[in-house]
Structures are given as C-alpha cells and as structure tokens.
Amino acid sequence: MKAVIDILIIALNLYWWVIIISAVLSWLIAFNVVNYRNQIVAQIDTTLRALTEPVLAPIRRRMPNLGAVDISPIVLLLGIIFIQMVLSYYVRPYVF
C-alpha cells in the first residue's frame, strides 16, 4: 500500500510541474515571446492544454470572473499540495 501512495505522490508532483509549465508557456505566448505559429510550440501547447484543461475547466466554472486574470492554476496547485499533505501525513503513517 505504501508503494501505491508513493506513486500517487510522484504522479501529483509530475502533474504539478505540467501545470506550472503550461502557465508559463501561456504567458510566453500571450506576451509574444514565443511564436505560436512555430509547429513545436503549437504541439507543446496543445499537449499541455489536453493534460490540464479537463481539470482546470470545472474550477474556472465555479470561480468568479476576474477579467483577464486566471487564477484557476493556482487553485489547482493548492489542491494538489493539500492532497499530497493528506497522503503524506495522515495516510502514510498508518500503512505498514
């Protein structure tokens, strides 16, 4: 059981980085630092959106409209941190 919890924590860590990279790439595209017409950039953005949008879309629906500011990735990152803390401190000590 400990191995399953460790794998879940590692998967959450990887997803945490996917969200960070997706947010940074969206800023770089929005500020025209990287060219979206570049095929590699477009493919990376499409892949990252496919990985993050199924989780971010429900959060965006429930949050109030803040205009151009999207804080749904921050809410998701806080949720991931909370889940990791629960797994680490409350579930792992009771697994033999």
Rank of each mutant, 00 (worst) to 15 (best):
I44S: 00
S88E: 10
I20D: 00
M63T: 10
N38M: 06
V86Q: 04
L76H: 01
R60S: 09
F31Q: 11
L77S: 09
P54S: 07
I74A: 14
I40L: 13
V91W: 02
R37G: 11
W17L: 15
I40S: 03
L76V: 11
V69K: 04
L87N: 08
P64A: 03
Q84M: 15
A50S: 11
R61E: 05
A57K: 10
S22F: 01
I83V: 15
A42F: 04
I20Y: 09
A42C: 00
I83C: 12
R37Y: 14
R49I: 07
E53Q: 06
P93V: 04
E53H: 09
L76K: 03
R60I: 02
F31M: 14
R62I: 05
I59S: 05
L51W: 02
P64Y: 02
L78Q: 01
V18S: 03
N65R: 10
A30K: 15
Y90S: 02
V41F: 00
V33M: 14
S72Y: 02
I40F: 12
S88R: 14
N38H: 12
Q39D: 01
V91S: 03
Q39Y: 12
L48P: 00
Y89H: 12
A23T: 15
I81R: 13
S88T: 13
V69L: 11
W16P: 00
I44M: 08
S26N: 13
Q84H: 10
T52L: 07
I74V: 15
I21E: 00
V55S: 05
P73D: 03
L87T: 06
A57D: 05
V18H: 02
Q84N: 15
S26G: 11
A50C: 08
M63F: 10
I74H: 06
L87Q: 03
